[in-house]
Amino acid sequence: MLPIERYAYCNSLRGMHPGEKFLFAVASMTTCLALNSLTVSGIVLLLMAGVTVRKGRIPLYFYIKLLSIPLFFFMAGTITIAINVIHSSDQVLWSWQWANLRFGITVESLLACAKLFLRSMATVSCLYFLSLTTPLIEIISILRKLKIPELFLELMSLIYRYLFILLEMAEKIYTSQSARQGYTCIKNSYRSMGLLASSLLMRSHQRSLDIYTSLEARGYNGTIKVLEQRYQLSKRNLLLIAGTELFLISVHYLNGGNL
């Protein structure tokens, strides 16, 4: 099973109102995106990592591993921003000549690069906070309160549930194929993979018919109505979130709004 999923269900912040977690993640993300400041991004990154690891009891090692996934992607993306065509007036840190153009890194481009990098990491850490502490089902119920169209939410929750069944089915077919030497060489592997995909399609279709039958047996009439679980909103948490965001904004302005 996917470890992110497991943590989403068994973390120490599970009992907290999902709305509060959603607000915390989205508000911090928006602040961080809107201010585009090196310090604010840094604080958000540290704050989110701290809350997720300390309060949510997510293992630090796992968290770092998870953060390192986008890390390389962001590095590749931001390095290209740091390197620019140099004009004579720029403060050049390092450069080289190619034909009659001069490429290099300037103080300004390095700063832009650092800002973008840190901002991306901070935003990702906000999303990680949400996905590591809040099960998708609860995020969907928040979206329902935000009046996202019902059809979209129904699809989202059904896809989410059946994703796991699909994965399980695929895994079982794969195991049974490997047990019969289905993946011993390239040729076999291609053939087995094709058979796996086609049988998965057939089975999914059959399964969707079965599910429809079972829903009908329980009085399904076109919309999936379910009861949402109730959570207690905590004033303290809401104040804490508001306080944090205000703190982030004031840090930015006290800093002169540059960094």
């Binding site: 099960p135 059904l158 989410y160 549930r161 079965d210 599910i211 039958t213 079972s214 999936i224």
Partner: peptide, 9 residues
Amino acid sequence: TQLFSASVW
């Protein structure tokens, strides 16, 4: 085939 929701509740 019967359990369609990801949440037991």
